[in-house]
Amino acid sequence: MAISVNLITGRTIQQGVSMEAGKEKPAYTTACGIIELDPVDFKRLGAYRNTHVRVTSDYGSVVVKAVEATQGPHPGVAYIPMGPWANMVVNPNTYSTGMPTFKGTPVQVEVAKNEPVLGSLELVRKGCRGELA
C-alpha cells in the first residue's frame, strides 16, 4: 500500500563527504539513494527499516532505500538528500522564478523490495536513454 508524504531534499554531511569522494562510488548511493521516513510513516507504510521503496510523484519515479529519519521526528515529511535520486521526483516547475521547486513535492511511497537502487551514473544514464522502469 502506498502512503503520501511531503518530500523535501537537502544536504547531509554524508551526502557532502561521499559526493567529494566520487559520485561514481557506492558510498554516494548509500548516502543519497535513500529516503528518510518518520517512524509514524513507516508504520503507515507497513514496512521494515532499510526496505527498498519506490517514490513516485507527478514528475517521475525512483527506487531508493527507506531509512528512519536521522533528524526527526517529522511525521508526514520525507527527506531524500539532494542528488540524482531526489531529482527524479522533485517538482521541476520554477513558476517563473528560475528555481525548481526542490522542496515540498507531494510523493507516493510504496514498498519495492525486489527493485534495485541504481548508482548515480547508471540512474541518469538509463533515465536519459529511457531505460528506466
Binding site: K23, E24, Y59, M82, G83, P84, N87, N91, P92, C128
Partner: peptide
C-alpha cells in the same frame, strides 16, 4: 546530479561538454 531530471535529459539530448575534475552524472 543537482538539476531536476527533466533538465538533465535535455543536456543529454544536446551537444554538450563538461569540464570537471571528477566523474559525475
Amino acid at each position: 546530479a543537482h538539476f531536476p531530471f527533466s533538465s538533465v535529459k535535455k543536456i543529454y539530448d544536446l551537444p554538450s561538454v563538461a569540464i570537471d575534475p571528477h566523474e559525475t552524472p
